[in-house]
């Protein structure tokens, strides 16, 4: 391996030109594989729509894309999207607050761990459609149904990851902190929380995706606006193009949130994990 000029004298070496080229190729290779994956998906969709189904059963991709554009430029698009996003964010934030308390209990109390582990497992195992129907029965057509359901399904994922993160903290770092006279609050903010952040984030990511789906499903049954409601309305009028257009827009929003929010936070939090420079003794 060739070595490049040092960053710090006699200590840290930078990546060689060859390694940088390899890294650039690897990045482009990744992007190309993502594009290729989507191209294959759309291609298969086109072929199936063209040769297996009628346009009423499964419209071709470009027809759905045109319909999605029409939906996007409609006035009620922003009203519906806003309603869905606000509910899922509200449910997710409630889950986050609840999970902090539950995660701490699971991490530090055997009794609570036994009790909550089985309870959370139970919630994860309940079919999501049962929550949606139950909220229609209990709360009727109300914005509270999607919010509560999103919170319920998101909580186990964040809680379990938070508890796992807290119990996995390197004990030696706590001993180091104590030996230098750090107080309990300083250890919590300086060691426990930062070392669990990535674990919490991976739970939050999963929880957000689950909460989105749950919120959408609840809207299908128990709401008068939102993406889920629009999908149901399209289905009721046998408008498959409209149904798929709303579903495609939903997927695009999910991908945007994943890439613009979660991936950016993850990149920021894990900066220290991916050093751009090599090391020497």
């Amino acid at each position: 391996m060739t070595t490049a000029p040092t960053v710090a004298p006699g200590s840290v070496s930078a990546l060689s030109a060859r390694e940088l080229r390899r890294a650039a190729w690897s990045r482009w290779g990744y992007r190309l594989s993502v594009v290729a994956g989507w191209a294959v998906f759309v291609g298969v969709w086109y072929l199936v729509a063209r040769f297996v189904f009628t346009p009423q059963q499964l419209p071709q991709p470009h027809v759905v894309a045109t319909e999605a554009w029409d939906v996007l430029t409609q006035r009620d698009f922003s009203t519906n999207i806003q309603a869905s996003i606000l509910r899922v964010v509200a449910g997710f934030l409630l889950a986050l607050v609840l999970s902090v308390g539950l995660g701490l209990l699971i991490a530090y109390s055997k009794w609570w761990r036994r009790l909550l582990n089985s309870l959370l497992l139970f919630i994860v195992s309940v079919p999501t459609v049962s929550f949606a129907i139950l909220s229609l029965i209990v709360l009727g057509i109300s914005p509270m149904g999607p919010i509560i359901n999103a919170m319920l399904v998101a909580t186990p994922y964040i809680t379990m990851n938070l508890a796992q993160g807290l119990t996995g903290v390197d004990r030696r770092l706590i001993v180091m902190s104590e030996s230098f006279g750090r107080t309990r609050p300083q250890i919590i903010t300086g060691v426990l929380i930062p070392s669990s952040l990535l674990s919490i984030l991976s739970g939050a990511r999963l929880a957000f995706a689950v909460a989105w789906r749950m919120e959408l499903l609840t809207e299908v049954f128990a709401s008068s606006e939102g993406i889920g409601f629009q999908i149901r309305r399209s289905f009721e009028s046998y408008d498959i193009r409209g149904m798929l257009a709303w579903a495609v827009l939903f997927i695009i929003i999910m991908l945007l949130i994943e890439n613009l929010v979660f991936r950016q936070i993850e990149r920021r939090l894990s900066r220290w994990r991916s050093p751009e420079v090599g090391t020497t003794q």
């Binding site: 960053v7 710090a8 200590s11 840290v12 900066r271 220290w272 994990r273 050093p275």
Partner: peptide
């Protein structure tokens, strides 16, 4: 002898550093 690595992360340093 480490004044130039003040803003690096530990993973960017050798065990000795």
């Amino acid at each position: 002898g480490l004044s130039e690595v003040a803003d690096l992360y530990p993973s960017q340093l050798s065990a000795g550093m």
